[in-house]
Amino acid sequence: MKIVVDRAKCEGLGMCEAMAHEFFEVQDDGTMVVLDENPGEEHRTELAAAVDACPVLALSLKD
């Protein structure tokens, strides 16, 4: 599984970080960093919740 970020859409709102802080971090300048782009399958539920929480639809998961 891979976390995909559409950088053109991402506004650094931090909903992803709130849902899955071990995978996402919003920097002081508002940019979001993916801490682990290829997480294990055991994290799918948590990451799907983070993807769904993104108000600008900037995140997706690819298998």
Rank of each mutant, 00 (worst) to 15 (best):
F23W: 05
V51N: 04
V33A: 06
E11Y: 06
P39V: 07
N38C: 01
G40P: 13
M32K: 04
E17R: 01
G30D: 07
H43S: 15
F23L: 08
A20D: 00
A53G: 11
A50W: 04
R44A: 14
D29M: 09
H43L: 09
L47W: 06
A20F: 00
L59N: 10
A53Y: 09
N38F: 10
E22S: 13
P39N: 03
N38W: 07
F23S: 04
C16H: 01
Q27G: 10
C54K: 07
V51A: 06
G14D: 02
Q27C: 10
L13V: 14
L59E: 10
A20L: 01
H21W: 00
G12V: 12
D52G: 12
A49C: 09
M32H: 02
R44C: 10
D36K: 04
A20T: 00
V51Y: 04
M19Y: 07
L47C: 07
R44D: 14
A48Y: 06
E42T: 07
R44K: 15
F23Q: 02
G14Q: 03
E46W: 01
H43M: 13
E42R: 02
H43V: 11
T31F: 13
A50S: 02
F24K: 01
M15S: 09
D52K: 14
G14L: 05
L35K: 08
D36M: 06
D29N: 14
R44P: 14
E37F: 08
A58E: 13
E25N: 04
V34L: 07
V26M: 12
C54E: 06
V34H: 04
V34W: 08
A49I: 09
G14N: 03
V26C: 13
D29G: 10
E37V: 12
A50E: 02
V33W: 00
T31V: 15
F23G: 06
P39C: 05
G30E: 08
A49R: 14
E46R: 15
V26K: 08
C54R: 06
E11C: 10
L57T: 14
E37R: 07
D28I: 10
H43Y: 15
E42K: 03
H21R: 06
E17P: 07
D52F: 13
E37L: 12
L13S: 11
G30Q: 08
A49W: 05
V56S: 08
L57E: 15
E25D: 04
D28P: 09
T31H: 12
A50M: 05
L35S: 02
L13E: 11
Q27F: 08
V34P: 03
G30A: 09
